[in-house]
Simulated scan of single mutants.
Amino acid sequence: MATRFLIEGRVQGVGYRNWLQEEARRRGLRGTVRNLSDGRVEAVIIGSYEETDAMLAACRKGPPLAKVSGIGLDPIDDPDVSGFIVLRDY
């Protein structure tokens, strides 16, 4: 199962991408994360429903300096990604 998270709030310039990468790796998830030009962070999370749901709960809190105001979710086709990587910004 692959889900795209669109994370809104104060999520750029606060270590959110690196935090998310470490959190996903710790949980054994695959996927990607990147900053978007509109100030949001986009993450593609690949894992079971339970793992994805747990990651969603973690993303709502984020790292200490972040302030998440909302997360949009979209199911997507499972991209062929090994591990969890930070992509270049849009």
Rank of each mutant, 00 (worst) to 15 (best):
Arg60Ile: 10
Val86Ile: 15
Ile76Thr: 15
Glu8Tyr: 11
Ile45Asp: 02
Trp19Phe: 13
Val86His: 03
Cys59Leu: 04
Asn18Thr: 13
Glu51Asp: 14
Ile46Gly: 13
Ser48Glu: 11
Ala24Glu: 03
Ser69Ala: 12
Arg27Met: 15
Ile46Ala: 10
Pro63Phe: 10
Val11Ser: 07
Gly31Thr: 10
Glu22Trp: 09
Arg34Ala: 05
Val68Phe: 09
Asp53Phe: 09
Trp19Ser: 04
Leu87Gly: 09
Asp38Phe: 06
Ile46Leu: 12
Arg17His: 04
Ile45Val: 10
Glu42Ala: 14
Lys61Gly: 11
Ala24Gly: 01
Gly28Trp: 00
Lys67Leu: 14
Leu29Tyr: 08
Gln12Phe: 07
Arg88Trp: 12
Gly13Ile: 08
Tyr49Gln: 09
Thr52Phe: 00
Pro64Ser: 14
Asp78Ser: 01
Arg30Lys: 14
Arg60Ser: 09
Asp53Tyr: 10
Cys59Val: 05
Leu36Ser: 03
Arg34Leu: 05
Lys67Asp: 11
Arg26Ser: 14
Arg25Pro: 03
Asp89Leu: 02
Arg25Ser: 03
Ser69Gly: 08
Asp78Asn: 00
Arg26Gln: 14
Leu29Cys: 06
Arg60Trp: 13
Ala54Glu: 11
Met55Pro: 04
Arg40Glu: 02
Arg34Asn: 02
Ala57Trp: 05
Arg25Met: 11
Ala54Gly: 03
Arg27Asp: 10
Val14Ala: 15
Gly39Thr: 03
Ser37Arg: 15
Cys59Asn: 02
Thr32Ser: 13
Arg30Gln: 13
Glu42Arg: 14
Glu51Lys: 13
Leu29Val: 11
Glu42Ile: 06
Ser82Lys: 00
Phe5Ile: 04
Tyr90His: 15
Asp77Glu: 12
Gly62Asp: 06
Ser48Met: 01
Ala57Ile: 10
Leu20Glu: 14
Leu87Thr: 07
Val41Pro: 01
Gly9Asn: 14
Leu36Arg: 15
Arg40Gln: 00
Ala2Ser: 13
Ile71Val: 01
Val44Asp: 10
Met1Val: 12
Gly62Thr: 08
Ile46Arg: 05
Glu50Met: 08
Pro63Lys: 13
Gly28Arg: 00
Asp38Pro: 04
Tyr49Pro: 05
Val86Gly: 05
Asn18Val: 12
Arg34Cys: 05
Arg34Met: 06
Glu22Gln: 09
Arg4Tyr: 07
Leu73Ile: 06
Asp77Tyr: 10
Ala66Asp: 09
Ala43Tyr: 08
Gly13Ala: 13
Phe5Cys: 02
Gly62Trp: 08
Leu29Lys: 09
Ile85Ser: 04
Gly39Glu: 02
Asn35Cys: 07
Met55Asp: 01
Ser69Arg: 14
Ala2Phe: 04
Asp78Ala: 04
Phe5Pro: 03
Val41Lys: 04
Ala2Met: 07
Ala66Arg: 08
Cys59Gly: 00
Gly70Gln: 05
Glu50Arg: 13
Ala66Val: 09
Ser69Cys: 11
Gly47Asp: 02
